[in-house]
Design a protein around this nucleic acid. Structure first.
Lengths: 142, 142
DNA sequence: ACAGAAGTGTAGCCACGGCTACACTTTGCA
DNA sequence: TGCAAAGTGTAGCCGTGGCTACACTTCTGT
């Protein structure tokens, strides 16, 4: 617990960052999911996205609408959803980060299954700097 | 990426867990904050809570209302906010977890300042099993 | 003692991410 | 081919967590 001089500012910034990260989380999850489905099935259908995310299809539709608004995906009515170049980049970044986070958790002794579960929420809050540190740790450790 | 047999179910469960954890995050953050303020200032005032969280006071008021609804805090109009026994327990658990997460991040090479920032979002997704693993790792490592 | 400053409550707005219900398209099979 | 099933869109509800604006209470200092 920091003190007098300027503790509130730093603490505040931490919470702001966490909230910001959280607002990206859904976008990241859907982008990765659409990428997965495209790779596995050739295309991503709303119903499949919804099923994998564990939500109903209108919820998936809303999320896709947000992705489209942000320029991360495109789609036409009653057709599949496709990532834009931007969306694909995000998906790649997210997948890479996910793998590193899972690997690090396992490396420090977390059971693999638990690592997968926790990583799903964890990963969105791992900054670039922390990711770099994780990679360095994994590399050094062989 | 899992395959055929029953991959959707497992994936779905991971996302559900992450969403569930997220719904607790705000409660946990406020409980810890109120506890901090009580320790530092003798009591937690809405304005102070809001300032530390980086939100406006009506937002803090709403959060406190939710804490009260969940039986984690009590308060009377124009007076400070106080944690119930349940709330205090949660705060203690959250603080302990926070410390372990920060320590682990530092132990694997994350810069201390970054560790503090990332931990703020990270910690809410660290399960009991993972926390145990973190503690074991830190103990073994000296 | 009382006025102004500071703190708090409340109303009402928005975006988001859930949901159900219902309408419409596409698909696939008898 | 044509109709039922599956897939998709859309409307509208809820709770949450942000916000501003405004009303009211408490505190403070002259």
């Amino acid at each position: 617990m920091p003190e007098d001089t300027a503790p509130a500012d730093l603490t505040t910034m931490r919470f702001s960052r966490a909230r910001e990260a959280q607002s990206m989380a859904v976008l990241e999850d859907y982008a990765e999911m659409i990428d997965d489905l495209a790779k596995q099935m050739g295309e991503a259908r709303i119903t499949d996205i919804a099923a994998r995310m564990g939500v109903t299809h209108p919820t998936a539709t809303k999320a896709v609408a947000r992705l489209k608004r942000e320029g991360l995906a495109v789609s036409r009515p009653y057709r599949g959803v496709f990532l834009t170049e931007l969306g694909a980049e995000m998906a790649a970044r997210v997948r890479m980060r996910h793998r590193v986070v899972v690997d690090l958790l396992i490396a420090v002794g977390v059971p693999p299954e638990t690592a997968e579960i926790d990583a799903e929420g964890l990963e969105h809050h791992v900054s670039e700097a922390t990711l770099k540190a994780f990679e360095a740790y994994l590399a050094k450790r062989g």
